[in-house]
């Protein structure tokens, strides 16, 4: 084994411990969201952006804040509102101490290259102009302003939206949703003990105090890009698992070719598009990161099973005639694909 490979393996082992620490730290703050936190950690080690969606008051914002605080680095937050414009993210104007008008850098530019997390709360309340700016920030990790380009190499965008309220909201365009590596649906915990804990334990009454109580910056955020590269290069994916991953993606696009049946649905006309090159690449990357987090050196089908819903659900676009029950149909489609495609 070469020294480089050995160093890389040691690096992965060291980092695995830190990833577990991060996971534990978030789990201590947020109750009953272990699966979502697992997936968020996968996304963090793939350097993918995350969109959280869920009912009102289930802890989306708290979870994202806790994750951002645990990750460390410079953190910025903005609230999505109907009058928010792209320039509000880049600069703001004010009267300076000397009484003259001044222009200062906005939340995106304030920390320069050290910006680690950009947290966009209630993203669907912002206008499409703002979504458009985010497209570039998420895809290229850069933005142009004041006649120059600013780069954010460590940037990860966390966003959330509530799924109940639709008034004065703007649906995220497909291109923007595709740039989020994962779209996670948060539900409230169902276990009685957890609900009682959330109900009666005073620790959970004050979200600010709760987040302050957890450890901060448990990871050196500026090394995350390197470790993400190391994970992708060190975790093995055999020909058999590559075949499996390929057929999973194909079956999601063309279920009729794999004999996947969904009751009362014409699968031939069901899927209009989805799981393009970015989506399939995210699936493979997250499967590798999941394998690493589970202390394996190679990807197995279970890694795909663990991440496929978070990666593919928001990337599958179905025929509008089925939109009345779209979410359930997509869920059924993914289950059908997982039950049908064998490996080996």
């Amino acid at each position: 084994m070469s020294n480089v490979a050995e160093n890389s393996e040691n690096l992965l082992t060291d980092w695995h411990q830190q990833a577990i620490t991060l996971q534990k730290n978030i789990n201590q703050t947020i109750l009953g969201q272990e699966h979502i936190i697992d997936l968020m950690v996968v996304a963090i080690f793939c350097r993918g952006h995350i969109l959280l969606e869920g009912d009102v008051g289930v802890g989306k914002t708290t979870l994202l804040r806790a994750t951002a605080e645990s990750l460390g680095g410079n953190f910025e937050r903005i609230e999505g509102t109907i009058d928010l414009m792209p320039h509000d993210l880049v600069y703001y104007t004010h009267i300076a101490n000397d009484g003259k008008p001044a222009v200062s850098e906005g939340p995106l530019l304030k920390h320069g290259e050290n910006l680690s997390i950009f947290f966009f709360n209630e993203i669907n309340r912002a206008r499409p102009q703002v979504h458009s700016l985010l497209l570039r920030v998420m895809a290229e990790r850069s933005v142009s302003a004041f006649n120059k380009t600013f780069f954010f190499p460590h940037l990860q965008v966390f966003a959330d939206r509530n799924r109940i309220e639709k008034d004065e909201t703007f649906e995220l365009p497909a291109a923007a949703r595709d740039r989020f590596m994962m779209e996670l649906h948060i539900k409230q915990p169902t276990a009685e003990a957890q609900l009682k804990e959330l109900m009666f334990n005073t620790r959970y009454y004050d979200a600010d105090k709760l987040i302050d109580s957890a450890d901060k910056a448990v990871l050196p955020f500026h090394q995350l890009n390197d470790i993400a590269v190391a994970i992708q290069s060190q975790i093995h994916s055999s020909d058999t698992i590559q075949d499996y991953g390929f057929h999973l993606c194909q079956a999601l696009r063309r279920p009729q070719d794999y004999g996947i049946q969904i009751s009362d649905i014409d699968t031939e006309k069901l899927v209009l598009g989805g799981m393009g090159p970015r989506g399939i690449s995210y699936l493979a990357r997250s499967a590798r990161a999941h394998a690493w987090l589970n202390q394996r050196n190679s990807v197995i089908p279970e890694d795909f099973h663990a991440v496929i819903r978070a990666i593919s659900k928001h990337r599958i676009f179905i025929n509008p005639v089925y939109n009345y029950n779209g979410e359930a149909i997509i869920e059924e489609l993914i289950s059908g694909v997982l039950n049908t495609i064998p490996s080996p």
Binding site: T240, I300, P301, E302, H305, L338, N339, T340, I341, P342, S343, P344
Partner: peptide, 21 residues
């Protein structure tokens, strides 16, 4: 590999779907 596949196929057939570990 083919032998493993044959046994996997038997498990899948009996389970009625692709069966994983």
């Amino acid at each position: 590999n083919h032998a493993l596949q044959a046994v996997h196929r038997a498990f899948n057939r009996l389970a009625g779907h692709a069966l994983f570990a």
